[in-house]
Amino acid sequence: MHSIVASGQWEYGIEGIGEGKSSPGLSLIIKSFLKDDPRPIYVVVNAGSNTLAQALIDFETRYSAQQLDAVVRKLRVFENGAQDNAGAWICSKYPDIHWIRSNYQTYCYGGPMPRTAEKLQVKGLKKGPLTWHPYAYSDLGQHQWTLEHVIAGHGSLGAYYPLRMMGNRLFFLEGGGTIPWLGLVNQGLYSVDHLSWGGWSGRFTAEKVPNIWSRYERIQKDEESYGPFNLYTEVADHWVDPVTDSVYHNVFAPVYRWRQAFFNDFKCRMDWCVADYNKANHNPVAAVNGDSEEKIHFFQVEPGKSIQLDAGASSDPDGDQITFHWWIYQKAGTYPDPIEIQDYSSSTVSLQIPKDGLGKDLHLILEISDHHVIASMYDYRRIVFQIR
């Protein structure tokens, strides 16, 4: 563990960067920069990004401009909450960096706080869908769910899961640092290179947007002095909770729509820590036209064409019955009008590509879930129809 975990900068924000301000953490980051590996480097910034800033500064002094450019283009940075003043500084100094700023969706694992919802003029249920049954719709209810399904009786790992206390107050279930990682769980659904497509990590703009400030006023004041910067920022979804028919049309909905699935996933995975394989639940495996590889599918199709897809080869390792649900993720695509899906709850599906869709994209989601006494687990495949 000590070979892959290290402390970062000792000071706050950009005050903690500069000549001679190296740290063990930045050495690990630079080590990842130098790996002979063509894959992107995924970085989650939790409380602050100055260690990444110092790593880029040090790399720039030691290596060529071409090497620096290659590293910057490999980075995929998810800034969780914009909690220090170094993120905007990095984006201003290194404008080609792939930087995702989540001021709000990142807190939607169990939150956000009611005052955040009120600030954004979000009406209705302030904590989003209730996915911690049978406990109360409250911070306490969330932690009671966690005590049963994560902390108690789930081994040493579960016992370390924190109750989120600040002073004498209990806050919503911890997960602000979790949302950035969750998208990577579903490689058949989410792509960090196509942020407007959405997934368990939320949904963001297709292009960078200028000067999206931190939600914290004291940080924004610093950011305003750096000059222009551009980054990807979160966007809203329209979603109807299939359990309660509650309508969500806000910036939280791109995470809320997956919440039941990832709560169930957490619950079942914690059983893996202590239960025999045959006494635990495991994710089903989705297949499209016989292909079960975990990937996003792309099809070039002509306007007006009738399409049939078959998920009948989907399977469940525990032998559980599978439920199929096909749906169009309209906000993820570029065709503006609703599309009718025939047999959306069957293993096979049919749809008509719109005649006026030339040059547009449609996103069809195959969502499967198993029927298990512990909880249902999910798998997904995104099918992108490129109408050409």
Rank of each mutant, 00 (worst) to 15 (best):
S3M: 12
I4W: 10
Q9D: 14
W10C: 09
E11R: 11
E15C: 09
I17P: 02
E19P: 09
S22C: 10
S23I: 07
S23Q: 06
K35S: 10
P38Y: 09
P38R: 09
A47F: 09
L56F: 06
A70T: 08
K93T: 15
K127S: 07
G128R: 03
P134R: 10
A136K: 14
S138V: 08
G141W: 13
H143Q: 12
V150E: 00
A159H: 05
Y160D: 13
M166Q: 15
G167H: 14
G167I: 14
R169A: 08
R169E: 13
L173Q: 02
P180Y: 02
S196A: 15
G198K: 03
G199A: 08
T205I: 14
N211T: 14
S214G: 13
F229R: 02
D237C: 12
D237Q: 10
V240G: 01
Y248E: 03
V255Y: 04
N264L: 06
A275I: 02
Y277E: 14
A286N: 02
A286D: 00
N289Y: 04
E294K: 14
E302G: 08
K305Y: 02
D310Y: 04
A313K: 02
P336D: 14
P336T: 15
E340D: 11
S346V: 06
S347C: 10
V349G: 00
L351H: 02
S369F: 05
H372D: 12
H372F: 08
A375D: 10
M377T: 05
I383L: 11
